[in-house]
Structure formats: structure tokens, C-alpha cells
Simulated assay, not measured.
Amino acid sequence: MSAPVRTGDTARLVARVAALSLHRPRHPDRRWDDFWRGVSQGSLTEPIIWDAAGAGHEETRNHLQTMADLMDTSLPVIDLGCGNGAISRQLADLFPSVLGVDVSPGAVAAAGSAHARIPGLSFRSLDATRPADAAGLAQEIGDANVFVRGVFHVLSRRRQAGLAASVEALLGAGGRIYLVETNVPGGALSYLRRLGATGDRIPGPLRQAISALPKPGHFGARQRSRVFPASRWTLVAEGSTFLTTVPMEPGGRPGSIPAYWAVLGRRPPGGFARP
């Protein structure tokens, strides 16, 4: 693509994204509940863009293997930002109990309906960016592991700090967090182009996400070190991976988004987290 053509395509793509973004609710929590309500009521008909890492999928297998290697799997696990519970269901094959938590009551209702009667699996609506709410949950269930997929990268810095404080409360002395987050090189347009967006056309699942959900961002090692500072956290392991998206076209292949993963434990005051 020549430079003038590329510039023109970029301008058209920016205009399309801006027009779609006008439909987003302003409050971030409203976005999630409106989204899940739209999914359950049928007004949002495109596949959910991140909802591809189901049972047996390579991405899910990688998550479960890493957690089995680096976490105490005798502890329960909390899936923060569980959405419709698709990965929460897979975690139930590894951990004795799984609690899926989401800020959206609509998501929790959908998850409970889709995964009813799975032993050890339950769901609850809770804003995990509010540490006081998480502290109450921690008192209820005791030490736990935490799983987070694709949540930190859409939060403001203030809400990232709140979520990290909640995680700290939930882990207790023995739990660890496994996080995996979008980490696409370049800006937002690089993310969109990777999923097939052009100035002339944006694929349906991506178009739906732009109009309904928060803007994606980066969350790699630099952001992790800011949100989980070494004074309070021990980094157990980290690396590069990918997040799977649904096919952008009917009958197409799933998409793949560059991502970052890390496992961390709390650093006790004056001491070190266990290796």
C-alpha cells in the first residue's frame, strides 16, 4: 500500500472508529452491563470478540498449565472479570472451587445460567476495583488464587491501582495471581488493523466491540511493574503469549492478539514471597 493510500485509509478508519465510539455509555461500568444486557436480549448479535478460548483451546491449555505449575491448586481461585464464565468453567477442572466475579450483574446472570450445576463453580457480581468490597470477600473465603484475563488493559490508572489492591486482599498469605493482558505493539490502530479493520470496512465482532466496550490498551512488563511494585509484590514468572479472538468473518479462523502474562505473589512486610 503506497503512503498516500495508506494515509487516506487511516483517515477513513479513524473516522469510522470515532463514529462507532459515540455509542459507548460514558461510565465504564455501564458499558459492561449494557453490553451483557444487549447480548442476553439479542440486540448485540455479533460473536463476543474475546470469547474463543474454550475447552481444549491452545490458549486455555497454556493458562491451565502455567497455573498448575506455579500456583497452589489446593486453594480456590477467583476469576476477576469472568464475563459469561467460559474460562471460569475451565478453571473448575483444576481448582477445588471457582468463584467468577464480574462488575456486571448481566454477565453474572448469563454465567450462572450457562454453567449451572457445575460442582464448585459459582458467580457473583462485585466491583473488584473497590478494595473494600474485595476485603469483605477475602474474609469470607480465605486465601485464594486469582485469575485475570484482559481486564487491566481497559482500566484507568486509578482503577488499575484499585484492582491490584483488591487482588492483594484476596490472595492472603498463600495465593498468587495469574494475569494475561493484551499487549499489542503500536497504538489502537495497530490493534484494529491486526483484526482486519480498514478504512473501508470493520469486521462485525470488532465493530460491535468498538461501539459497546472500553478502548483496549497496553499491559506489559512496564505497566505490571507500575501496578504491582516490587516493594509489595514478588514476580514469580512472566512472558509473552497471545489472546484468541473469535473469527472476524463467518467461517474464518480465530484471531490472535499479542499479550503478556505474569504470575505474582504478595511480598510479606520485611520478607519475601515463597518461591
Rank of each mutant, 00 (worst) to 15 (best):
T10N: 05
I78T: 11
R37K: 15
S21Q: 11
R26D: 12
A52P: 00
P131W: 09
T45V: 13
V148T: 12
A114S: 15
A230Q: 07
P250D: 09
R26W: 13
P105Q: 06
H153R: 02
A197L: 02
S104F: 13
T10V: 05
V148K: 10
H115F: 14
A144H: 02
R24I: 02
I87Q: 14
L91K: 07
R266S: 07
W233F: 05
A138D: 02
P96L: 11
L91G: 07
F152A: 06
A165H: 05
G136H: 13
R201P: 05
R37Y: 11
N62G: 14
T241K: 07
A52E: 03
A19V: 01
A116G: 15
R193E: 06
S125Y: 14
T241A: 10
I257P: 07
S225R: 15
L99Y: 15
T241Q: 08
A116P: 08
A92W: 07
R124C: 05
S256G: 07
A15R: 03
R30C: 11
A197K: 03
P269L: 09
P229S: 01
A237P: 07
R222T: 14
L195P: 04
G85V: 10
V246M: 00
R232K: 04
D69I: 13
Q139M: 13
R266H: 05
V180Q: 01
E59G: 09
V180W: 04
S43L: 04
D133V: 12
T10S: 08
G8C: 03
R194H: 04
W50Q: 09
M248L: 11
P229G: 05
L192K: 00
P275H: 12
G142T: 10
L179H: 06
R31T: 04
